[in-house]
Simulated scan of single mutants.
Amino acid sequence: MRILHCSDVHITEDYLALPLHRLGWRRWLALVELSLGGRAKRYARAPQVLSTIVREAEAHHVDHLILSGDLTAYALEGEFAGARKALGPLAEDPRRCTVVPGNHDVFTPGSIRSDRFGAHFGQLLHSDLPEYRREGVWPVVRLVGDEVAVVGLHSTRVAPLPAFPYGVIGEAQLDGLAALLKDPRLDGRAVLVTVHHAPRNRKGVADRWNHGLRDADALLRLLPGPRFAVLHGHIHERYHHPATADRPHLFGAGSSTEAGHEGYWLIEVARGQVVGGQQHTPAL
Rank of each mutant, 00 (worst) to 15 (best):
D217T: 13
A163C: 06
A218E: 14
L181P: 08
F228D: 09
P184V: 14
G233M: 05
R200T: 15
F251R: 03
T244M: 05
D183Q: 15
T156R: 12
R227H: 13
P224A: 07
L174A: 01
H211R: 13
G167P: 09
G170H: 07
E147T: 09
N210G: 03
P184Q: 07
A206E: 06
P199E: 00
P160K: 03
L223F: 10
L186C: 13
I169E: 01
L250Q: 08
L180P: 14
D246E: 14
A178L: 05
V144M: 01
P248H: 09
Y166Q: 04
R247K: 15
H240R: 10
R214M: 10
L231G: 02
S155M: 07
A206G: 11
G152D: 14
A190M: 03
V158D: 10
L213Y: 01
R189A: 14
P224Y: 04
R142S: 04
G252L: 07
I169V: 15
G170S: 13
H232C: 14
V141N: 05
A206Y: 04
G167H: 02
L177E: 04
Y166H: 08
A245K: 11
P226T: 07
A198L: 05
F251P: 05
G204A: 06
R238E: 11
W209V: 13
S155H: 04
G263N: 04
L186I: 07
H197Y: 06
P242A: 06
R189V: 12
H249V: 04
H249G: 09
R189Y: 14
F251W: 08
A163L: 12
